[in-house]
């Protein structure tokens, strides 16, 4: 086990973590503003992957244009789902929204199966993204670099938006208290819509990345990454955007290192390890790594 091997495992962990983090941000934003555990979030990720495939293979869009299309359609999916499935449930007990989101998830998955079939599809990225870059110690593909760079740019942009723009501050105010936010003149419906749009757009981008990285997509591909991103959000402290980022990277890195550094016979326990880690973190830090104590508001 040379240092190049370990380094390349770390790089893989960072790539996986970037994708988890982008999904986890949406989980945490949506939970933060409507207290909804959105089970359909992983399916937005799947939709993002299929939208990419359609844009590249069917329409023949250049990859950067496809990226923009994916962000926008992902955001649109999020907004439409919120309007149809979640807004009518607002004010209902938390479990009602949770079940509604499960219904949305099943509907989306079956729609994909019915229209496209359950067969996994090959997902090809343009040749220039598959080119290899050698840093001397390790060799990686251009797409791997692009995934990490894009994820970081998006996260920085989001942090800037949430902290330094008026609408971002209004969104945080809405997440804290609907009534007082309304007394400030904030249209809370619009803030909730925006949170769904941003969160879903990021999940869709993550789907694009996943397809580009692993070369294969299927209607059920969102299930495990969605669950793990949820774990990442909880580990980081649900409701906290920096927490989702930290949680995503911690999870991605530890998952890859668990598989990569332990003897091969343990690699089948990869998912058990992830969910076991969640239980341990919650036992030690019930609010997650960066979460605020929100017990009194739940």
């Amino acid at each position: 086990m040379g240092s190049a091997y370990i380094l390349s495992q770390i790089v893989n962990g960072v790539i996986l973590g970037s994708m988890y983090a982008l999904i986890a941000i949406g989980f945490t934003m949506i939970y933060g503003i409507v207290r909804l555990i959105n089970f359909a979030h992983g399916d937005i990720f799947t939709m993002g992957a299929f939208t990419t495939l359609a844009s590249l293979a069917l329409i023949g869009l250049p990859f950067p244009v496809a990226l923009v299309v994916v962000v926008l359609t992902g955001a649109l999916f999020g907004v439409v789902i919120e309007r149809i499935a979640f807004r009518p449930m607002r004010g209902a007990p938390q479990v009602t929204g949770f079940i509604a989101s499960l219904a949305v998830a099943i509907i989306l998955e079956n729609l994909l199966v019915m229209t496209i079939s359950a067969q996994p599809r090959v997902f090809l990225v343009p040749e220039y993204l598959n080119r290899l870059v050698s840093t001397g110690v390790i060799t990686i593909r251009v797409i791997d670099l692009a995934i990490v760079a894009l994820a970081i740019v998006l996260m920085i942009a989001l942090v800037f938006f949430v902290h330094f723009t008026k609408v971002g501050i209004a969104m945080r105010a809405t997440a804290e208290n609907y009534d007082v936010a309304r007394l400030m003149g904030i249209n809370i419906d619009r803030m909730i819509m925006l949170a769904f749009a941003i969160g879903s757009g990021l999940a869709a981008v993550s789907g694009l990345m996943w397809g580009s990285k692993y070369g294969q997509i299927s209607p059920f591909m969102g299930l495990l990454p969605g669950l793990k991103a949820f774990v990442a959000a909880v580990i980081g402290g649900v409701g906290s955007i920096p927490g989702a980022v930290v949680g995503g990277y911690v999870l991605g890195l530890s998952e890859v290192l668990f598989v990569g550094l332990l003897p091969p016979e343990y690699s089948g326990y990869r998912n058990a390890f992830v969910f076991g880690a969640l239980i341990v973190v919650l036992l030690v830090m019930p609010n997650g790594l960066l979460g605020r104590n929100t017990e009194t508001r739940a």
Binding site: I169, R172, A173, A175, E176, N177, V180, R292
Partner: peptide, 8 residues
């Protein structure tokens, strides 16, 4: 109850 935004 004043209701300042604690997160702001």
């Amino acid at each position: 109850g004043r209701q300042v935004f604690a997160a702001l």
